[in-house]
């Protein structure tokens, strides 16, 4: 297959719907062969960015470039971009094979060549035996595989995935997610993936961009994003975070839940006495049974891990994650002593 990764660049792209700014001065550069995910809640502008790149939507200002070429005047059907949609989008009047051949057919490729290419791609997505079936005879997961093969058949310069897994059940979603990553790496195609599922984003991406109200809050590798979130929104959206009031004790120290933590690595410049918020990951908190103190209120079994909700006298519970084996020792109603490790604590101004 003759696909080369292209460079994609958004430069200061803005899109408004009436008075609502869907995308605000959005800039992003995707390297050839890279898989970048835009992650964020509904309405954050991630799909708008993808649709502008596809040429389905139009930016109000800014520039979108593929391999340095300005795309603004090029219509969607001339951009050579493969796209997989959230909704099942197979053409109902065609078989899986005909769907995959469609892009080549409209390009005037002869039937022998397009049949060969479609067969190769159906083989790649593991559906060679289903080539004669129509969309109504395929499961949701199979339909999205065919849609992926169809998008790749035209040898696109960029692959766009618009929440392609969101309509699938958990098991199929996880399988297809890994398969998308495998295929993307095999082919080396530049890919922009859009999802609101952080687990999905973390599992498949080279880099993840977290979007909030039309802005790209942070873009980083999945591990960096999790361990070094730059904003409270990113910390809250990527993984579970406890937001706890704290008071600065010095430039590098804060008082959180009666403990003084040295947070020199993650702190903004603090002023003594300043009220701040500490963002604490559940795994940064350890608990031990005690005669008095915080009280265990909830206990949720999550398989290998168990999440425990503790009342430490704040408005909200704080959450701790223990291995399910460790959690067996603790029951709801128990008193516990809470210890926070400063490694994964981030402080933000209140």
């Amino acid at each position: 297959m003759d696909i080369h990764g292209s460079t994609v660049e958004f430069n200061g792209v803005t899109r408004k719907f009436g008075n609502v700014v869907a995308l605000n001065d959005f800039s992003l550069k995707i390297k050839p062969g890279e898989l970048v995910t835009l992650l964020g809640p509904s309405g954050c502008g991630k799909t708008t960015a993808l649709r502008i790149l596809a040429g389905i939507d139009k930016e109000h200002s800014g520039v979108v470039e593929i391999d340095g070429k300005d795309m603004s005047s090029i219509p969607a059907n001339k951009r050579n971009i493969g796209m997989v949609f959230q909704a099942y989008s197979l053409f109902p009047n065609m078989t899986a094979q005909e769907n995959v051949e469609y892009g080549l057919r409209v390009r005037g490729v002869d039937s022998v060549a397009r049949s060969k290419r479609a067969s190769e791609l159906l083989e790649l997505v593991g559906l060679a035996s289903q080539s004669a079936r129509r969309s109504t005879q395929l499961s949701g997961g199979q339909q999205q595989r065919v849609a992926l093969a169809r998008a790749l058949a035209i040898e696109p310069s960029v692959l766009l995935l618009d929440e392609p897994l969101s309509a699938l059940d958990a098991q199929v979603r996880s399988q297809l997610r890994d398969e998308i990553r495998r295929i993307q790496k095999t082919i080396g195609i530049t890919t922009l993936f859009v999802t609101h599922d952080q687990e999905e984003a973390m599992a498949v991406s080279d880099r993840v961009g977290v979007m909030n109200k039309g802005n790209l809050d942070q873009i980083d590798s999945p591990s960096h994003l999790y361990n070094k979130p730059k904003t409270p929104f990113v910390a809250g959206f990527v993984g579970l975070t406890n937001v706890v009031p704290a008071v600065a004790q010095s430039k590098n120290e804060v008082l959180v839940l009666d403990q003084v933590l040295d947070i020199s690595e993650h702190a903004p410049s603090l002023v003594k006495g300043e009220e701040v918020k500490a963002l604490i990951r559940p795994e940064a908190i350890s608990i031990e049974k005690a005669a008095k103190g915080a009280v265990v209120i909830t206990k949720s079994f999550l398989g290998p891990m168990t999440r425990i909700g503790i009342d430490v006298g704040l408005h909200d519970l704080i959450y701790v994650e223990l291995t399910s084996k460790e959690a067996k020792k603790i029951d709801t109603g128990d008193h516990v002593e809470v210890t926070i490790s400063s490694d994964s604590v981030m402080v933000t101004h209140a």
Partner: peptide, 8 residues
């Protein structure tokens, strides 16, 4: 949109 993105 799917058809258009495929070049039609």
């Amino acid at each position: 949109e799917a058809s258009s993105s495929l070049g039609a």
